[in-house]
Amino acid sequence: MSAALDTQGHIASAARTDAPPAIVLDKVNKWFGALHVLRDVDLQVALGERVVVCGPSGSGKSTMIRCINRLETHQEGKILVDGIELSDDLRSLDAIRREVGMVFQSFNLFPHLTILENCTLAPIWVRKMPKKDAEELAMEYLTRVRIPEQAKKYPGQLSGGQQQRVAIARALCMKPKIMLFDEPTSALDPEMIKEVLDTMVMLAGTGMTMIVVTHEMGFARQVADRVVFMDRGEVVEVGTPEQVFNDPKTDRLKMFLSQILRGH
């Protein structure tokens, strides 16, 4: 909330270039069967940096961030999260999933648990936190996303926007160092998009490392330190929001931007 805004209303970067990078993707390749969906993807995200990933559908952007917490396994190249390399080693997997929170397009709240139980589940079972502490923590985050009064309800009783804010709170309850957002507003009705984006802007203000797959250009301009444009499994352009949106270098990006602008 108290984030320092620079002249264009952009939240000041909290990226710490002095610290080792939070995420490193080094020549990452992935196939679905014979289909080559990620091609030599290189990307470094600094601690506290906010990266927005955009690109046409099927460009591999969701696959890329799903590789970061290993919901998908990459087959070539290296991924380092918080200095730990992703491998078949289950210990490294456990460590990484504790540090990385994820918000899905379709919320994926657990419908048989209350909002509070959704939020306390992982702290209790993964972080081995006492139930009382976990509930306090959950209420703290639910207050931050401004829905503490819904704690005893079930997900089915909430609107889409509220559900997505719960999903953000649920991820935050694990006190992650990195947050991944996979098209968090795509499944929402237009009037609910703003409340979710506001929550994400608020989160950005706290200095959280974030990777966000989204088409919300306004959000990207306001929050992103860097924008990554992907197409056909490749990172095509990387730059500040101004560079990418105002001065596209490649035809692919130009075409994408014209389609996006026409669409809005």
Binding site: R97, F104, F110
Partner: peptide
């Protein structure tokens, strides 16, 4: 399944 995996369960 994915949400549960992402939580580290």
């Amino acid at each position: 399944y994915e949400a549960a995996d992402a939580m580290g369960l």
